[in-house]
Design a protein around this nucleic acid. Structure first.
Length: 323
DNA sequence: CGAATTTGACCCGCGC
DNA sequence: GCGCGGGTCAAATTCG
């Protein structure tokens, strides 16, 4: 896992995770011994950077988070318009053996590009699903690994297992997780012809943390337009993978471990609300530090967030950073 | 009554 | 080959 990210590491590997801008795809280990991934946020609260990577490494002992914890970060990222994602830097094929599916993955219709989902992602998924229904089980060709959608996972500190992300999901399974008292739930987007799946489970190391893993790309816009939502774009696929409603879920992210180096490579962020989306607030003039500094305005604009998020967890991230 | 959830069974991949 | 764990299906059940 780590090795596969080597070529795109933007920061330093730590005991708790790997800082990278690379979004994981099918190489993302699910369950088992490793669980790690990254996501990027426009956020000024880190060093001299307005964006940062977040990483986590569950089941391997540590959990590293980043600054979602800071509500102002959340709301500023909510209202931050970022440019369409660029294709990821090409990686040596030796390190990303099956990356073609990622690189060629179509953009979401929500993105600025027109979907060409017939190329190799959505359509194959449909066929696979049909096969699954007729033969009950996926039967990929021999010598050909089952193609998996790019995956994107993140952690949320929440009492709610199934976070409202603006899409409608249908639960299709639940499994107990080894070494965890909490089950893992499997959801599928209820929109027809949208093969996006979502897995929700609680961290075994911190039961207050919900781990949500998205797989696939929505072929449609969110049927629900939350007042404030975190829209997460897959960097590799340039597609919307998550659309979290901050206001209604009280989404929280634990602060990153203080003192850890944080390097940032200017974005291709994949967390965005694009101009095609409704924005809860007008975009800030820039991503420079001042836009995240106003807690007063934050509280004014938070809506439900300030009601849902306990005061103690809304404290300034700087407090944690400083000690 | 349709939609959503629950839950046991089944299949697959992987490690031993 | 076997066992284990992950992922999915689909009938039964519950919910709105």
């Amino acid at each position: 896992m780590e090795k596969k990210f080597e070529d795109s590491l933007m920061g330093s590997a730590t005991s708790t995770g790997i800082y990278s801008q690379t979004v994981f795809s099918d190489e993302f280990p699910v369950g088992g011994s490793g669980f790690s991934g990254v996501f990027d946020l426009p956020c000024d609260d880190h060093k001299a950077s307005c964006c940062s990577s977040s990483s986590f490494d569950l089941f391997g002992g540590g959990i590293g988070f980043h600054d979602f914890y800071n509500p102002s970060s959340i709301f500023d990222l909510l209202s931050t318009t970022v440019p369409p994602l660029q294709p990821p830097l090409s990686s040596p094929s030796s390190t990303v053996p099956e990356s073609s599916e990622v690189l060629n993955a179509p953009p979401t219709p929500n993105s600025s590009s027109v979907s060409n989902s017939s190329s190799n992602e959505a359509a194959p998924i449909e066929e696979v699903d049909k096969n699954a229904k007729t033969s009950k089980v996926l039967k990929p060709k021999k010598n050909q690994k089952k193609q998996r959608e790019p995956r994107f996972a993140f952690m949320t500190k929440s009492d709610i297992d199934h976070l409202d992300d603006g899409y409608r999901w249908r639960k299709y399974g639940q499994k107990t997780v080894k070494n965890s008292p909490y089950p893992r739930s499997y959801y599928r987007c209820t929109t027809s012809q949208c093969g996006v799946k979502k897995r929700v489970e609680r961290s075994s190391s911190d039961h207050s943390i919900v781990i949500t893993t998205y797989e696939g790309q929505h072929t449609h816009q969110s049927p629900v337009m939350p007042r404030g939502s975190i829209r997460i774009l897959s960097e590799s696929t340039n597609c919307l993978v998550a659309d979290h409603d901050v206001a209604t879920t009280g989404i929280l992210f634990q602060h990153n471990i203080p003192g850890q180096p944080f390097m940032y490579n200017p974005p291709q962020p994949f967390l965005t609300n694009e101009s095609s989306f409704l924005s809860p607030r007008p975009p800030p003039p820039s991503l420079s530090p001042p836009l995240l500094s106003s807690r007063a305005s934050l509280l004014q604009d938070n809506g439900l967030l300030q009601d849902l998020v306990p005061l103690q967890v809304r404290k300034e991230p700087k407090d944690e950073q400083n000690g």
